[in-house]
């Protein structure tokens, strides 16, 4: 009864060829097939945003997709945000603003925010809040995350958000 498919997916610049069941979630594929466990799973029903990855550059919830849907596509996970031993300005900003506590939600926030901070040199606070409104964090109350976003934008665009 298992329905197997061979897929080719590029993750963080490396192309993987794997044979998977049609029903395998993309989140499980990334975590358990590829061993990229930085992507977290908090709800498996599309609400918490912890599993967010970039799919051809766009943030998507990997728990709401099947691995087979990623065939021929490019994915970026938190492990691909910066070369080993370095940090993306967004990661630096999260560190500096104390924007994470348990850190479980953090990869999802980072992946949601990467395109946002790179394309919004001057967002209002309301826009920042909207940008992260699809990600749940149970530890921080969001305030330091919002500060981190402002700081990241400053670092990236050399502006004052």
């Amino acid at each position: 009864m298992t329905d197997l498919h061979t897929i080719r997916v590029t993750v963080n610049g490396t192309t993987y060829e794997r044979t998977v069941e049609a029903r395998m979630l993309l989140s499980d594929f990334i975590r358990h097939e590829l061993g990229l466990t930085g992507t977290h799973v908090g709800c498996e029903h599309g609400v918490c945003g912890a599993c967010t990855v970039l799919f051809d550059g766009q943030p998507v919830r990997s728990c709401l997709m099947f691995a087979v849907q990623a065939d021929g596509h490019e994915i970026m996970t938190v492990e691909g945000l910066a070369p080993e031993g370095e940090m993306h300005p967004l990661q630096e900003a999260f560190h500096e603003a104390h924007a994470l506590q348990c850190g479980f939600c953090t990869p999802g926030f980072l992946m949601t925010l990467k395109p946002f901070v790179e394309t919004h040199p001057n967002p209002t606070e309301e826009e920042i809040r909207k940008a992260i409104s699809g990600n749940l964090c149970r530890c921080t109350g969001y305030q330091h995350i919002i500060e981190a976003v402002k700081l990241a934008i400053k670092k990236i665009h050399h502006t004052d958000a």
Binding site: T37, G38, M87, Q91, H95, G103
Partner: peptide, 8 residues
């Protein structure tokens, strides 16, 4: 923070 931020 560093390990948490980089998915490690």
């Amino acid at each position: 923070d560093p390990v948490l931020l980089t998915g490690q």
